[in-house]
Write a protein that binds this DNA or RNA. Structure first.
Lengths: 200, 200
DNA sequence: AAAAAATCTTATCTTTTGTTAACGTTTTGA
DNA sequence: TCAAAACGTTAACAAAAGATAAGATTTTTT
């Protein structure tokens, strides 16, 4: 099965956070389920509670808000990254954040309920607490960097940063999503690009 | 001693995350140290690695960046909140974020080294992993909300939000710090306040 | 108590962004 | 394959924000 290869990939990436022995891995995998999202289908529908943490095996998603009927894209995730609406997942309430596949996307997920069960299972509890801590810390650092860039930089500077380090986003996301991600309108991003082209 | 009362306060707040039994608490407290920061003294000096997670017993701090020689305030913490420069603390590298007391501030801290020791101590490991997870998750949610507000709202809307929920910040922080916190200049905040006064 | 520094507002001018709309191109979907 | 939708650019104008400086008031420091 291809599923085996996918599980192996997932396990390898998990090892950045936590290494399972064989017995633990068997129990852990019993809580996993695979999902395929066709392009434009949702990982979280507007208004829904986020029930899963997913790991993207292939494909990509965008996180978006809705304001005055308009969609505003706030973030992206790609293959070999986790995806969840953390606040909604943790609080069991609908978030302000929805998640949509932008390509056909294959995921391996575990549910909130599964996570609670594993946290309550003496065999896995310690490692799952640790996994949760390390994963949370990883995303905390991402957020810290992203907040810094909004506090200290102009949209143009953020775009220049993206040019140097945001290959996936630039190459795989439509520009109007990128504009939102930078905190500006698509028209404004188009102008920034023009400025950059003409000058330095 | 007043230290006892302070420890008790801290323990009570910790219980939002984790409850220690007496034996655990004794070991945990051996890793704590108290600090007093006079107004304008630093919790983290520019260029320094953040070595501690602190809990503010009284007082307040601001987090700030330096850009082009200018200080830009990105966040605040008040009594009964934790304070740390998470990325620097976790990565053991200097951050882009410095922390300064804005009033005489009393803290109870534990160092990175202490935390590692507790995480390696079988007696405390599980609870410290859990504590780390829950604390990280708490701040993750804060960041998620704060990022949303930058992606979906105008500075004026963020200021209006602050008027309804940001009592401490509004009452205890100078306005030019609040302006930075909202992502704008002090002059711009002054104009926003004027607009709000005149109209709705 | 006096001097210095910090704070906030206001004014002026410049730059940037938002809004709306038009246009051509590309992609999508029926 | 063909019509519809999505996408990116540009233009024109309005609104907002940045930069700079001046001035009044308050706070801090000496």
């Amino acid at each position: 099965m291809d599923t085996l290869k996918a599980l192996d990939t997932f396990r390898q990436h998990l090892e950045k956070y936590i290494a399972f022995n064989e017995a633990e891995w068997i129990v852990f995998t019993q809580h996993l389920h695979f999902t395929t999202l066709k392009k434009k289908k949702h990982f979280i529908e507007p208004g829904a509670v986020c029930n899963d943490v997913g790991f993207i095996l292939s494909g990509s998603v965008r996180y978006y808000h809705v304001k005055d009927g308009e969609e505003i894209t706030g973030y992206f995730s790609f293959e070999n990254e986790f995806v969840t609406s953390y606040k909604s997942y943790l609080t069991r309430q609908p978030g302000s954040n929805y998640i949509q596949a932008l390509e056909d996307t294959v995921l391996v997920n575990f549910s909130y309920k599964s996570m609670q069960q594993m946290l309550a299972n003496p065999m896995l509890a310690y490692k799952m607490e640790r996994f949760g801590r390390l994963l949370g810390e990883y995303y905390l650092i991402c957020y810290e960097d992203r907040m810094s860039s909004f506090i200290t930089k102009t949209p143009e500077e953020r775009y220049l940063d993206l040019l140097s380090t945001g290959r996936d986003i630039l190459q795989r996301m439509p520009q109007h999503y990128i504009a939102n991600f930078l905190g500006i309108t698509p028209v404004s991003l188009s102008r920034i690009r023009r400025r950059i082209l003409i000058h330095g």
